[in-house]
């Protein structure tokens, strides 16, 4: 396969994985917690690097899960001790992210992990880091990482579908039914963390947020059914990645930035033209009801 194909494929998988997991983030009103985690995952990656001296997948995943859970936990602690939620999120992620940036600039200067990489990823260079097995080249590492994570996400959501659905829409009811709401919350946040770190290499810290939040929000405007929202969201995420890649090639700009911008354009289209929840449809419906009465 050509280099371009690998990049496009990896981007599409990132879009799909983030779109799927992001659906629940948007429904649970935790979009900004995702923003926080996508920043703090940096600390996990740097920590894993400092401990293991490699940037291998498993170490990074473990580091990411730990910092993701820590972030969630810290926000929870501040929240329950009376700090308002938005401020709690702001304090926690900026602090952990700062520590991450400081560690990168002090200790990890010489490795393939610099501040630019953190911000916008390195999708262009993905095809050069390949996995070899028995002398065969199996394709880029980043591709396999996100592919494995995507499978884990899909399995997790299929197995936990009912539980996730009820805890997202009616946490009080879920609690009353005796579901382990807190455990599920932390499990879900672990999924968010590993998805974030697997995407991190391709699109960087801040643009992961775009992939996590914008496609699900777009899908949310297009349908009222959860299953469809997940499917639409994955499709929109993958489409944004592919379209973004071609725009980036055309204008010779950052691929990750262009992917994020594409999610924004698709969202704007849905915001204006969605069949039921779009602005224009709503205006038309209002005018119709006015003329009828």
């Amino acid at each position: 396969m050509s280099y371009d194909m690998w990049i496009i494929l990896t981007g599409a998988l990132v879009g799909a994985a983030c779109g799927i997991i992001g659906t629940f983030l948007v429904l649970r009103k935790m979009a900004m917690i995702a923003d926080a985690i996508s920043h703090t995952v940096l600390l996990g990656i740097v920590g894993a690097f400092l401990v293991s001296q490699t940037l291998e997948g498993p170490f990074m995943l473990i580091g990411a899960v730990i910092t993701g859970l820590l972030t969630t936990f810290f926000i929870q602690v501040l929240d329950s001790s009376g700090v308002q939620t938005d401020a709690a999120i702001g304090v926690v992620f900026t602090a952990l992210f700062s520590v991450g940036v400081i560690l990168v600039s002090l200790f990890a200067r010489n490795v393939h992990l610099d501040v630019d990489h953190v911000l916008m990823g390195d999708i262009t260079f993905i095809p050069f880091h390949t996995i070899e097995w028995n002398g065969m080249t199996l394709g880029p590492k980043a591709f396999w990482l996100i592919a494995v994570v995507l499978v884990i996400d899909i399995v997790f959501i299929t197995v936990m579908y009912k539980e996730l659905k009820i805890t997202s829409f009616d946490p009080a009811m879920a609690f009353a039914l005796g579901l382990p709401v807190t455990a599920l919350h932390y499990l879900f946040m672990s999924m968010v963390s590993i998805t974030t770190v697997a995407s991190f290499d391709s699109v960087g810290a801040i643009l992961v947020v775009a992939m996590l939040i914008v496609p699900p929000s777009t899908a949310y405007l297009l349908t009222d059914r959860l299953l469809f929202m997940i499917l639409y969201s994955a499709a929109i995420g993958a489409a944004s990645a592919v379209i973004g890649y071609y725009i980036a090639q055309w204008l010779n700009v950052s691929i990750a930035g262009s992917m994020a911008s594409t999610t924004g354009i698709l969202f704007l289209l849905a915001f204006l033209f969605a069949p039921q929840h779009g602005i224009i449809a709503k205006r038309l419906a209002r005018r119709l009801s006015v003329t009828e009465s």
């Binding site: 009103k29 979009a31 900004m32 995702a34 923003d35 916008m120 949310y220 950052s254 911008s261």
Partner: peptide
């Protein structure tokens, strides 16, 4: 929160493009 996330990431992404 979703609105803030959308605006933040898309604007920033566009900033990176520029």
């Amino acid at each position: 929160d979703a609105a803030i996330g959308i605006v933040l990431s898309v604007f920033f992404g566009f900033g990176i493009v520029l």
